[in-house]
Write a protein that binds this DNA or RNA. Structure first.
Lengths: 225, 225
DNA sequence: TAGATTGTTAATCGATTAACAATC
DNA sequence: TAGATTGTTAATCGATTAACAATC
């Protein structure tokens, strides 16, 4: 139970990309299970996302032997295994810090709830917001992050404050025992080892798109002449 | 002007990660220019983000020779070069498709505007929304994507519709001549070559976090015994 | 000139893909 | 058994890092 492999082999460091792909596989499995498909091959899974079938098999093999040679993977079984591996067989209480435009939007966004992530407390430093409730969710002052999250043993948080405030908020979250942070602030956060940060930097993504659009416009112009 | 390098060498394929880092460097340059710093070394830039200085130099070298040996990079000059390379020396008109929770939030979100990305038209298929204006921005039916974007020669779009509708929307955007898409729908989009998609999959990111939290909880429990 | 830092080549590292024995 | 597909090793590919001549 503690180790996926019982042969005593060293547990490999698992690439982060593998983890991200697991949730993509899971999404696909949810679809095919709903369709009534009983088994899929790595080939079929791969085609769906333009990936390589060897990669699918390798990703899964990090966690155990889930397949049947000659047949593929039983969809229902693999789905449950992936849910267990990803920790999705339980609900997660998530703290949201920052109730500006973006924070309010995230609070209303149904995507979190649907996947078993429940925003159960919000922190902000605006006195006009503190003390209110949005639906059932109380808005608390940022100073209360440590006591509130400690008491409730919460491990996940979403940061939606301006870049200038993000590191201070992070320090409080870490002190409170949070070890997984979804960061929307456009800044590099420094955290101790063992704390995982996922950055959602819309600004970086837009600029990347701008680069490609600009380049293809340039290329077009050149070839037009 | 057409090529960064005039020595006739083949233009390298530029890694996408390099592009993403350029906008991170730019953010840093904006800060140090504001501080009045005249020059920075690759070393100093790298330290700021926990990167390697050789990587900074290599990333920049894809686009030309911007540095001065023995000194580093002039901040103001490099900043302008990066803005030009990324296509940020102009405003971008962006179309938003989908005016649900997420779409409305993105429309209100100031981060786009600030960076020169202006959402100037919204598409939705809900008759109760079509025809309205949000601020100055008109809401049009999805069927009008092709004529409207063609006429206005718009190249960038944001998709904030449910996964089930995302591919059909994408096809319209592509037909309209869009070549850069920021996709919030949790699904793999298929696009022709030359069209760039950036996926913002909150669900995948949350699941990745869930994995790490789960694992560290498991490890803690094991070591507790 | 002496010290510093670039631009670039070569070495390293890690991730993806091909290939195939094992086996359902 | 014959056909198919896994799990895994070896080959390939690409990106990161080290090293250093060029040069400010």
């Amino acid at each position: 139970m503690r180790r996926e492999k019982s042969d005593g082999s060293t547990r490999h460091r698992i690439p982060e990309r593998t983890i991200a792909r697991l949730s993509i596989y899971l999404r696909c499995l949810e679809e095919v299970v709903a369709d009534g498909t009983v088994a899929v091959s790595s080939q079929q899974l791969a085609k769906r996302f333009g990936l390589n079938s060897a990669q699918v098999r390798k990703d899964l093999a990090y966690f155990g032997q889930f397949g049947v040679r000659g047949l593929g993977y039983y969809t229902e079984e693999l789905k449950q295994n992936l849910e267990r591996i990803l920790g999705l067989d339980q609900e997660w209480d998530v703290a949201l810090v920052g109730l500006g435009n973006l924070g309010s939007a995230l609070l209303r966004y149904r995507g979190f709830q649907q996947r078993g992530f429940r925003i159960s407390v919000v922190f902000d430093n605006d006195p006009s917001k503190v003390g209110r409730r949005i639906g059932k969710v109380p808005v608390r002052p940022v100073e209360k992050i440590v006591p509130v999250l400690r008491r409730r043993r919460m491990k996940m948080a979403v940061i939606a404050v301006p870049a200038s405030a993000a590191q201070a908020v992070t320090d409080r979250l870490v002190a409170a025992g949070v070890n997984a942070i979804l960061n929307f602030a456009p800044t590099q956060l420094f955290v101790p080892k063992g704390v995982k940060v996922q950055n959602v930097d819309l600004s970086v993504m837009l600029k990347t798109l701008s680069f490609y659009t600009t380049r293809s416009a340039r290329d077009t112009r050149v070839s037009d002449r």
